[in-house]
Design a protein around this nucleic acid. Structure first.
Lengths: 118, 118
DNA sequence: ATGTTATATGAATATGTGTACATATATTAA
DNA sequence: TTAATATATGTACACATATTCATATAACAT
């Protein structure tokens, strides 16, 4: 029998069928990969973590990360476009905060469970 | 006083200091961003999810994703290098599985909590 | 109005990433 | 040994991404 052979693309049809049946929803894949991409940059990850504790303006964040304000602003735009930060204006300064607090903390926790691997 | 002004890099010193004090560990940032980068590709995300349910070989995964085996092999190498998949050889066939099962499920769950946002 | 400050935005560039194609390796069968 | 199969690996290229520099906008003070 050939259900166990590759070559001319003949594979474990049952496993492939099951994987397809249990596959993640397209929408979930799109949103999740965007989310993971957003937090896969050291600067953005630290920004989000800091903004869970306190409201901060762009130049605070630039000082915190030791980066330029322009760079921070660009990163905040990315995070804002994904709904991961919101801001409040006070005069000329914009105070940012991280937004779905519980979900974000859950994400940090989930990442933490990978840290201690043998 | 000038603790509230930016310009010559004078900022909310207290907030910056607190953010620095509560900052994530360098090691955590490195590992987490690598992890998030690994799951920020649609193909790899679906591979990991599928391999939580069943062991699959490279050509199974290629059929499942409708991708080339070479491409899948490259992605598996990345995942393997991060310890996110392990394999078992049976003849010429390598069967892969996703590895820290609980942590991975936790990560999928964490991503799921971002899906329903208004 | 003008000037100043905080931030945003656009463009350019450098670096990273994913895929395809070609080739190599490892296991099995003959 | 040779041939065939499943997978791995190297290279090249197209594409995305992050940062920098320059410029624009918005709020405020004068």
């Amino acid at each position: 029998m050939d259900a166990d052979r590759c070559g001319a693309r003949i594979v474990h049809g049952d496993k492939v069928a099951r994987a397809k049946a249990n596959d993640l929803m397209v929408d979930f894949v799109e949103k999740s990969t965007l989310l993971f991409k957003a937090v896969s940059d050291p600067g953005r990850l630290r920004i989000l973590h800091a903004l869970l504790d306190a409201e901060m303006c762009v130049c605070d964040l630039a000082a915190f990360l030791d980066a330029t304000e322009s760079s921070v602003s660009h990163q905040l735009r990315l995070l804002r476009s994904m709904g991961l930060v919101k801001n409040r204006r006070d005069g000329t300064v914009l105070y940012y905060r991280a937004v779905p607090v519980k979900a974000l903390k859950g994400l940090f926790d989930a990442a933490g469970r990978f840290q201690a691997e043998p």
